[in-house]
């Protein structure tokens, strides 16, 4: 017979704890227990990237992580991306270049794009497209998404 698990973890730098059952995913808990609804569920099978978060510095789909596996980890979600009232350059470039339409995929894309730029500050268009292949967007056709990412990269490099 299963029991609930008591989990402690950091989310966006704050300590959180919750009780969960083994089949609950990290996504379920982030949204339904921690009420951080910026992380979206588009498929629950790792195919759309809307639930992208950083888990101990690694880009993952939070729907493919069980909540019980997150004990002692550090999670970063879209809610932690801006610092105070200062948007991250990616967030600002998405706004200024219209890198979003409906916005449902946007948090996942921003988290994934930030992970890209941390590893590769000067990606080519092709590198950006392949890195973001795990993030489906149905509105934009990706053109302005990719332009926003490349513009933010240039800005962050001081180019």
């Amino acid at each position: 017979m299963s029991r609930k698990h008591h989990i402690t973890l950091q989310v966006n730098g704050d300590e959180h704890e919750f009780l969960c059952e083994p089949q609950q995913t990290l996504l379920d808990v982030i949204r339904d227990e921690l009420m951080l609804t910026g992380t979206k569920e588009g498929c629950a099978t790792g195919d759309c990237g809307a639930c992208s978060v950083m888990l101990d510095g690694r880009l993952v789909c939070s729907c493919l992580v069980l909540a019980v596996e997150a004990e002692g980890t550090s999670v970063e979600t879209i809610e932690g991306m801006a610092s105070g009232d200062r948007l991250h350059p990616l967030q600002r470039n998405f706004l200024e270049l219209n890198g979003l339409q409906c916005g449902i995929c946007t948090p996942g894309i921003l988290i994934a794009a930030r992970a890209l730029l941390e590893k590769n500050p000067n990606p080519t268009e092709t590198e950006a497209r392949y890195w973001l292949a795990g993030n489906l967007c149905r509105c934009t056709g990706y053109d302005k998404v990719i332009r926003s990412v490349l513009a933010a990269a240039a800005e962050m490099r001081g180019a």
Binding site: R31, T37, T39, K40, E79, L100, G103
Partner: peptide, 15 residues
């Protein structure tokens, strides 16, 4: 409405 969409604040149906 873009600001709320890049910060995760925008409320979609399941939110």
């Amino acid at each position: 409405d873009g600001f709320d969409k890049v910060t995760g604040r925008a409320k979609f149906a399941a939110d």
